[in-house]
Design a binder for these strands. Sequence first.
DNA 1: TTTAAAGTTGACCTTTTGGTAACCTTTGCA
DNA 2: TGCAAAGGTTACCAAAAGGTCAACTTTAAA
Lengths: 143, 143
Amino acid sequence: MLSLSQSVGYAVLALAHLDPEGKQLVLAAQIAEAANIPRPYLSKIIAKLQTAQIIEGKRGQNGGLRLLRPAEEISVFDIAEAIDGPSWRHKCLLGLPGCSADRPCPTHDFWGETRAAIETTLREMTLNRVRAFTEAGWRMPDA
Amino acid sequence: MLSLSQSVGYAVLALAHLDPEGKQLVLAAQIAEAANIPRPYLSKIIAKLQTAQIIEGKRGQNGGLRLLRPAEEISVFDIAEAIDGPSWRHKCLLGLPGCSADRPCPTHDFWGETRAAIETTLREMTLNRVRAFTEAGWRMPDA
DNA sequence: TTTAAAGTTGACCTTTTGGTAACCTTTGCA
DNA sequence: TGCAAAGGTTACCAAAAGGTCAACTTTAAA
């Protein structure tokens, strides 16, 4: 609890392995290997990223994946939105289903401000910045 | 995602209906009715709050529930800890299992600071302050 | 000492998320 | 032209969280 879904992390990690210019194709199998993500699960994440127009897949021999926009124009915010949907930005900190501006829970205002700050940070965190981390060998730990 | 578990909200709501001095006993059935929480589910939440020494239940006729400490000494932080366990304060924002101080994810430092701010706010948010909200009739919405 | 009021417990169901497996479709090249 | 390399898709399984049900134990009062 109190985190984005695990799949968002996987997606960020995966995208960091693509060509930042969106020119060269990279194999899904290579990403799975490099990031230590189970291939079938990676496929599902890739599907969502394609729906969100963040990447494109090319089938067949000499196929692969590529970014549809340059890495500096793709943020972790975009990725979270693609994987978890827009709903994560509206959830009450205490999980109260009826919490809203009209009937705020005690943490409503604080959480609204905090969430805005989180959102800003995630928007500023582009794939380029993430790459600095993953190039140092960041990958999923073995089970 | 990006919230405490729903049960934390239920617990906060429930506790706000107890006598703030911890003197008078209040019926679990009354709380369920007032807050619109399913009784059997409330029972499970109550069990955790008892394990955490936040409340005490007295069985039998003329039984009920009462706070073990005055309402101004019980914070939402304590309640979150009792319900979700201490783990929520250590989860990576991106949900990455291998993220730690040694091998930080790109959001690690930012999230550490933000989480500390959230923690502080929740520690300052005592049951007394919550009562101001619930006394205005806050309850769970109907299904 | 019985009984009804109260909280307690364990089994079970459902939904969501994470994860696996098998199979299908496309495409370049021998 | 057919086969192997690639991604895509569907169905399924498992664990955790949310939620329900029914039966149990404790206890004070009649």
